[in-house]
Design a protein around this nucleic acid. Structure first.
Lengths: 211, 211
DNA sequence: CTAGATATTGATCGCCTGATCAACAAGAGA
DNA sequence: TCTCTTGTTGATCAGGCGATCAATATCTAG
């Protein structure tokens, strides 16, 4: 018996760093873990192992696991939104930009984030911090969709209508992605499904969003 | 110290019954618990307490908790489908029947079942029995929606189109209900949102499904 | 070079989970 | 009434959970 004995973590001691940096490392570990294994995988010990620190250190930096989960969710989803926004904003033509937005939301390239969303809806029923975070991010997504819709819609279209169409799009995207996550339904035709509706609502020529 | 001592369950012994009946009781307890507390609440001990038996008896009747959860899900959702089918089938006029179907799916009167659906999508990623059960029930729902749509649609409408519209409706309903579950968005206007699309797709007069 | 501040740790508590198995109890058939 | 089948139980195992706290190790200011 020379090396390990019975310790709680059995691991070289983590180098001392600034609280800010350490908190960032732990948050990053939590986000990566959630994307790979889902929000359920965010346990004190799993996050600690991922970050290479003792589990008690994670507890030291996070007020509670409930809050850590809510924060990880917020960070993941906010990043996704920023990413998608950036992806769409490079497309100049408004209609093409709308198409790019819808396509990237439905092509399954973000299944890991979709998994986080579904976990969040489930867990949020028992965690009010997470519930608040979910509502907040949904509102942000709604606003982003409205923005892109507005640019592609006739100027005469009232904001009320755009709100409605955005809610429709958000529900469709979330529904279709949830379905795809369990291996059900057509993830490919998803775009065609939703494009058709949006074209009509915005008075765009048929096929404007599928070509 | 006269009554309880240290036992595992501390409870009057359950009367001996036939395996069939006992299995049904346990299944019923699991379903009720899932509707009230979510699929996450289905633990060996919680189901046992609800059924008034020892936890080891639940383990004796269920091959595994994973399977018990999948079975409870299937039973709950199949019942819901039968119930909704019955509710719609008493409406004679096809268009009114379609409206009744959509309205009952979106009025929030089945939030408990929606919770079970969301839990199922989340857990199904880690449980293949549940994943299979989810796909199976989604297929059944799709078929039921197609049926009602067909009766309200022009006879000339190809089955391919009806499939597409049904997928659209299912995604919308699931998306809107998931949103409503965390207290986000307009659960009331939900019907208006989806009715508008379905009216157009089926060439129904505007407002046919909202009045 | 020392002393104080603080980032980090290991051990521990109480509670929960699914699963297994010998032992018990109660109804059914002889 | 007696035996046999079998529905039911309690105890137990190995593991995981969040949280807390005294102790330790390391950096920094004096």
């Amino acid at each position: 018996m020379s090396t390990a004995s019975s310790g709680a973590d059995a691991r070289p001691r983590a180098p001392r760093t600034s609280p800010t940096e350490r908190a960032a490392q732990i948050a990053a570990a939590a986000e990566a873990l959630a994307l790979e294994e889902g929000l359920h995988a965010l346990t004190l010990r799993a996050v600690a192992a991922r970050a290479g620190v003792a589990s008690s250190l994670v507890a030291h930096y996070a007020p509670s696991m409930e809050q850590l989960v809510a924060d990880a969710f917020t960070s993941i989803v906010a990043s996704e939104l920023a990413e998608v926004r950036a992806h769409a904003s490079v497309v100049r033509h408004p209609t093409a930009r709308l198409q790019a937005l819808l396509a990237t939301l439905l092509d399954g390239s973000r299944d890991d984030v979709t998994g986080v969303w579904v976990d969040a809806w489930s867990i949020a029923r028992r965690s009010s911090p997470l519930a608040a975070a979910v509502r907040e991010q949904m509102t942000a997504w709604h606003a982003a969709i409205v923005e892109v819709l507005t640019q592609a819609a006739p100027a005469s279209m009232p904001a009320r209508e755009l709100d409605r169409v955005a809610a429709h799009v958000l529900a469709m995207v979330d529904g279709l992605n949830a379905h795809g996550l369990v291996g059900y339904g057509p993830t490919g035709p998803g775009l065609a499904l939703i494009a058709r509706v949006v074209e009509r609502e915005l008075s765009l020529p048929e096929g404007a969003l599928t070509r």
